[in-house]
Each structure stands twice: as C-alpha cells, then as structure tokens.
C-alpha cells in the first residue's frame, strides 16, 4: 500500500511522461471526433452565419446582416416568444409536477414504488414520432381521449392543437407526460437525503409539507437546477413535435425556435440565416452550460 501511494505521488519524470502520452492515445478518438464533428462545425457555423449561402453557390460574406435581420424578423421573434412560453410556463409546470410525484414516491412507507416508477418512466421510451402520432389522436377535439376524459368531468374540452390558444398547453401536456427522466434523477437525489433528518423533524412535530419545505427542497436544489437546465436545453431543441403535429400552426402558435431554424435551412435554403439562429441558440446554451458548471460543480468528482 505504502509503495503505491509513494509511486503515485512522486513518479519518475519519464514514467509520468509516458503515462500522459498513453492517455493521449486513449483520448485520441474523442479529440478527433470533437475537432471534426463539433468544434469545426461550430466555428464554420459562425462563418456561415455572416454569409448569404444556399449550398449551391459559394457563400458571400455579409457581416452581421443576418443577425440584424433576425432582430427585425417578426416570425423569428414569434418563434422566440413561443419557445420562451414553453420554457417559462411549460418548464415550470413540468418541474413542479415531477417534483411532486418524486417526493411522494420517496416516502418510505409506500410499497410498490418500483411499479409506479415503471409507469412514470415508460413514456420516455416511446419514439418521438410515435408519441406525436399518439397525441394527435389523444388531442382530437371531438373523438380524442383527453376531451372524452374531460367530458366525464362535465367539461367541454378545447380544440387543443387546432386552436391557437390551446396548442401550446397541449404540447405542455405532452411534455409532462414524458418527464420520467426528471423523476428518476429527482429520486436519485432524494435518496441522498438522510432519513434521520425527516425523523427528527417528525419528532419536532413537522408535518409533511413543512418537511418538504424545510428539508427536501433546499437539499434537492442542485438536482432541481440541473433538471431545469437540461429541460431548457431540450425545449430549445423541440422540433419533431411541432413539425409532425402542427407544422408550426395554427396562427404560428407552435412555431418554435428549432422548427423555424430547420425551415430556414432546409426549406428556404437560407443556410447563413439559419446559422445565425443556431449561433444565438449556442450562446443561450453556452450560458446555461457555464451556469451548470460554475454553480452546480457539475462533473467535479474526486
């Protein structure tokens, strides 16, 4: 044992160098992949974002024109506000619902939790395209399951994805349905909270809600923040759902950031313009990533 420690603390220079060189071989595939499939695309995207480019003709440099035009583009601003709506309202609701469910499931008195966990996790396994098909039908105004269920309660359901007012709430329903991942992460975080803290709070006469407020939420904060950040980044990438279910309509109410980006790139062939959108998205994502790394000490083990 002693030998090992000594060894690892003060290795001879040559051994250290050799180890570092070996490590380079090990990480080489990632380095190549990162340079070719991540870094180069990001940098060339920055260049494209300052050009007028339709793939066939060589790009022509136009400086910041694309960015300026974006700020003047009402459709872009609409896609931005739609996405913001989903982040602020949809994201908050999803986080709260998943939190409630996972806190309930963390109750040690309850049995059969693993079965419930299966139910909540199952929707995340459904391929997106199939989930969209499923929800198109679930949300049908007259023959859909959602409005049938509401009908049992005596409520006349809205037109959901056929209505500009209700299309985003409809998509939030889908988002909540697929929040199994968040629940699992929450539960892993909850397990780290020592049971003794709850017990001593019980002896002090704290009820369930007091315990949640004073113990669970504060200790779970990093997990909640992590979930929020990843959820926001997922919402930024929301694409298949509006494409397959609504094509951005009605009244552009489901035209989200990534869908408009896709349209510009692959339907209107404005690669430069779409790249500018991608770079704005990158800046938003980077800010979130830095936040994640700085404030949550994400990934810093040992």
């Amino acid at each position: 044992m002693n030998m090992t420690r000594k060894n690892s603390i003060r290795k001879p220079m040559r051994a250290e160098k050799k180890e570092a060189l070996t490590a380079m071989v090990f990480i080489a595939p990632w380095v190549v992949g990162f340079l070719v499939f991540t870094l180069y695309p990001i940098l060339s995207s920055l260049y494209y974002s300052m050009t007028n480019y339709n793939v066939l003709n060589p790009p022509s440099f136009i400086g910041f024109e694309n960015y300026i035009n974006l700020l003047k583009d009402k459709v872009y601003l609409k896609s931005l506000t739609n996405t913001l709506y989903m982040i602020v309202i949809g994201g908050t609701i999803t986080i709260i619902v998943s939190l409630i469910v996972s806190i309930i499931m963390d109750n040690r008195k309850l049995r059969g939790i693993s079965l419930f966990r299966v139910f909540f996790f199952m929707p995340t396994l459904v391929p997106t395209v199939i989930a969209c098909v499923l929800w198109i039908w679930m949300l049908q105004p007259t023959t859909g399951v959602v409005n049938t269920l509401l009908g049992y309660l005596g409520i006349t359901g809205p037109g959901w994805i056929a209505s500009p007012t209700w299309s985003k709430p409809a998509m939030i329903l889908m988002m909540i349905w697929a929040c199994g991942n968040i629940i699992i992460v929450n539960m892993a975080g909850l397990q780290d909270i020592p049971q003794s803290m709850y017990e001593s709070a019980s002896i002090d006469g704290a009820n369930f809600f007091q315990k949640v407020r004073t113990i669970t939420i504060p200790l779970l904060r990093p997990v909640i923040l992590y979930n929020s950040v990843t959820l926001i980044i997922n919402i930024l990438q929301w694409f298949a759902e509006p494409l397959i279910m609504t094509e951005g309509g009605p009244d552009s109410s489901t035209l989200f950031y990534s869908l408009y980006l896709y349209q510009n790139a692959f339907q209107f062939f404005k690669m430069g313009y779409a790249s500018a959108m991608a770079w704005i998205m990158l800046i938003i994502a980077l800010a979130l990533i830095i936040f994640l790394l700085k404030f949550l000490k994400f990934g810093e083990s040992e």
Binding site: F37, T38, Y40, P41, I42, S44, S45, Y48, V229, T230, I233, L236, Q237, F239, S258, L261, Y262, A265, F266, M271, A274, S275, A278, W279, M281, L282, A285, L288, I289, L292
Partner: peptide
C-alpha cells in the same frame, strides 16, 4: 448538452 441544431447545418 450541446443542442444538435448548433452543428446541424455545418455538418449537413
């Protein structure tokens, strides 16, 4: 956590 859309166009 890098969104695919960021690299999508240059990759294409």
């Amino acid at each position: 956590v890098l969104p695919f859309q960021v690299t999508m166009i240059p990759l294409f």
